[in-house]
């Protein structure tokens, strides 16, 4: 890393002047306490909401609602507690990409997961019968 051979070092140097001015106003980004506490309060309220939602009969929508609340909570944790709102967007991209790949993984697995149900069920019934015979002897 020599300043004489790398032109970007010069850029860096020039850029640094601006950056310095910028930084002198802000320093590291510190999340205000009031904001942290507000997010904390919202997370607690949503936790009560997710428990309360189980007492309401919504059929399949119960799962969707529970997951929706979880996603909102996760987003709040990521954006504020984990600072992503003010971070380099690339960090957020890494996170979103990992979730996207998990979704792909689960999605494709679910598409195929019922394919072997008849065989599995047949094996289970066979097992029950042979065990019952063994117990009956």
């Amino acid at each position: 890393m020599s300043h004489t051979t790398t032109p970007d070092a010069t850029d860096n140097h020039n850029g640094h002047k601006d950056h310095e001015d910028h930084d002198s106003h802000h320093g590291p980004h510190v999340v205000p306490f009031s904001m942290l506490f507000t997010i904390f309060a919202i997370l607690i309220v949503l936790t009560f909401a997710t428990v309360g939602a189980t007492y309401v009969q919504l059929g399949d929508f119960n799962l969707a609602l529970a997951l929706a609340i979880a996603v909102v909570k996760a987003a709040l944790v990521c954006l504020y507690f984990m600072h992503l709102r003010w971070d380099s967007p690339f960090n957020g991209l890494v996170l979103v990409a990992s979730f996207a790949f998990v979704a792909l993984f689960i999605g494709f697995a679910l598409m195929d997961s019922k394919a072997y149900t008849p065989e599995v069920d047949a094996a289970a019934v066979e097992m029950i019968q042979s065990d019952a015979e063994a117990a009956g002897q």
């Binding site: 380099s88 996170l95 998990v102």
Partner: peptide, 23 residues
Amino acid sequence: KLGMWVFLATEILMFGGLFCAYS
């Protein structure tokens, strides 16, 4: 921070396997 986020991404993928089994 970027390094940490990449590590956290691998953590999410690891738990993703278990969430897949669950699903």
